[in-house]
């Protein structure tokens, strides 16, 4: 492999990986607080992507031609709506079961995931929808690397959102409450933190990040399919585990790592094995180093 190809593959991987990292953020934040793999995250990501198509097309109809404001407005509306949906998901599928054995909320979040993608399938008739092309497809040459302007913007937007979320958790008062709740829910409650509200907020933020990821993905590839949440959700989960689940900066690291790994995988193996490789990476990590690269931020309790 030439150096140029190597760099190009890394760049490709980073672009895809940044989107995965953004979805992974939702898994990792929820897991950090309530120790639940929120399968619904994959569905929220997909719903976000579809809401994005809807609003984007709508704005096109109202003559909003400037791409950047259109993307921004779409992002804000879809993230808000998906956040609200995540709120409902928490209320319906998690809260009544928070004291139930592990299997119950796991199955309910799985059912929720399936419900979300099935609804998308029914509403759209399972046909792939297309995002309007935003920017010119003319490639940008950055030294030896060639990228489309869209993917460059996607990458920076995803990183920006992730860093923003990390700063939010680290610096704000609410973020502090989230960390406290993650560390010890009872103690946090005793300190006067409304942990129920914090859990809700975590789901909402996770869902909003998922929606952002869905829209960025849609803008980048131009096409969204009703089953995107399945694979996307799983890859993102791999990313979350790889970075150390519960670890917010870990989601970014995990996402980028998974992106680059899968990008390389298809240079050495036939392209159609790509998904299988991601699954294999997932199993290997869980078997060998379940605490991820950076380690879980929250120590596992028995």
């Amino acid at each position: 492999m030439s150096l140029q190809e190597l760099l190009q593959q890394i760049a490709n991987g980073l672009v895809v990986g940044s989107v995965y990292g953004l979805i992974a953020l939702g898994y990792t934040m929820v897991y950090g607080i309530v120790r639940l793999i929120n399968f619904a995250q994959g569905g929220l990501y997909e719903v976000g992507a579809y809401l994005g198509v809807f609003f984007f097309t709508l704005m096109g109809k109202f003559g909003l031609q400037y791409p950047i404001p259109a993307v921004l407005i779409t992002l804000v509306i879809s993230m808000t709506l998906t956040g609200a949906l995540a709120f409902v998901v928490e209320r319906v599928a998690y809260r009544p079961l928070r004291n139930a054995p592990l299997l119950a909320p796991l199955v309910s979040s799985l059912a929720m995931f399936f419900l979300l993608i099935s609804v998308v399938q029914v509403v759209t008739g399972a046909e792939p929808l297309t995002y309007p092309s935003v920017l010119s497809p003319a490639p940008l040459h950055l030294g030896p690397i060639v990228l489309s302007p869209t993917s460059l913007i996607i990458f920076f937007a995803a990183i920006l959102l992730m860093v923003g979320m990390q700063q939010f958790v680290r610096r704000t008062k609410v973020g502090k409450a989230m960390r406290a709740t993650a560390a010890n829910r009872e103690a946090a409650a005793l300190m006067g933190i409304n942990t129920t509200r914090i859990v809700s907020l975590t789901f909402v933020l996770g869902g909003a990040m998922g929606a952002a990821a869905g829209i960025l993905y849609g803008v980048n590839y131009g096409t969204v399919t009703y089953d995107m949440g399945e694979f996307g959700g799983l890859v993102a989960f791999t990313a979350a585990v790889m970075g150390g689940i519960g670890n917010v900066p870990g989601a970014l690291v995990g996402g980028l790592t998974v992106g680059v790994l899968s990008s390389f995988a298809s240079t050495f193996l036939p392209n159609q094995w790509n998904e299988a490789i991601v699954f294999a990476i997932l199993i290997l990590i869980l078997a060998i180093r379940p605490q991820g690269i950076l380690g879980e931020r929250v120590a596992e309790r028995a």
């Binding site: 793999i37 299988a276 294999a280 199993i283 869980l286 078997a287």
Partner: peptide
Amino acid sequence: PTLRVRGDYLAIMTLGFGGIVYYAAQN
């Protein structure tokens, strides 16, 4: 290798295994 991990990770690992078999069937 998978049954040693805790319950929720096991669910994900079996999901991954199912995925691998599916793609193996396809490829």
